[in-house]
Design a binder for these strands. Structure first.
Lengths: 133, 133
DNA sequence: CTAAGGGTTCCAGCGACTGGAAGGTCAAGA
DNA sequence: TCTTGACCTTCCAGTCGCTGGAACCCTTAG
């Protein structure tokens, strides 16, 4: 399989696949003209990484998951730990974003939004009276 | 005021303040030894930017807000528009993160987390059966 | 013979900083 | 006066996870 087909089948752009090779996720062989040749297992790996990334795991977490995936002796508790830690981080982000949104919607509600210059949003940013938190 | 004091009072690191000067947010004067001299208004600007950033506005949005803030003739509807657009983006991010979290917690629940190698999390990443969405 | 459509490498840029090196300046203390 | 240390300066490189582009090679079809 050439890189284009792998890209198509995995849904990961060729640029990204080459990048993943750079950072050691893959080690595709080359044929005599220098083209990368991918096996099915490599395609699987890529798909695996793609899914993990779409779940918000960062590259290092993907690396860890990949290592666990390839280690037939691993216990599932290791994977569970990574996933749980990741859920914690996601929840922290969600909380941050909700706080932001609530503050902003509150300010927006208070803002007339007409042509007059009074603007609670700017006032808040300027004076720093926290609406929340 | 030297940069250190501004950093202290605004809560923004000196590195970041210099960066903000680079990208045209500030134009502090210099004294004869080359040190930046900040006025109170500059401190206000920095605090303003800091708050906007902490609300998740990106640099360009901050630039727009700053321009509106400094334009005494502006109508508040412009500001409101930016804020509303921003809320939309925040809500999209929240939705994404909630979907991620739900998928993951679902998988975690299904994962025994013991020393046995069966692991629904890895299975899911590998086989790509979407638990959600 | 040429053109299109693969593939290759390498370098640079995104956003928003952050770290570090190498050096200039200033105030206090011995 | 000298030294120490804290502060300031500039500039360059790195972060993360790609992404774009240039310049080039390979293959196939017309």
């Amino acid at each position: 399989m050439n890189i284009g087909e792998v890209a198509e089948r995995s849904g990961i752009p060729t640029k990204t696949i080459r990048y993943y090779e750079d950072i050691g996720f893959l080690h595709p062989k080359r044929n005599e003209n220098g083209y990368r040749i991918f096996e099915e297992t490599e395609l699987h790996k890529l798909t695996f990484i793609g899914r993990a990334r779409s779940l918000g795991f960062n590259i290092e977490e993907c690396r860890a998951l990949l290592a666990l995936y390839e280690d037939k002796e691993r216990g599932s508790s290791d994977v569970k730990k990574i996933a749980q830690q990741h859920v914690k981080e996601i929840e922290a982000k969600i909380a941050d974003l909700i706080a932001m949104r609530d503050t902003l919607t509150h300010l927006i509600t208070a803002c007339a939004g007409d042509h007059r210059p009074d603007c609670p949003i700017l006032d808040n940013l300027s004076n720093g009276k926290r609406e929340q938190g």
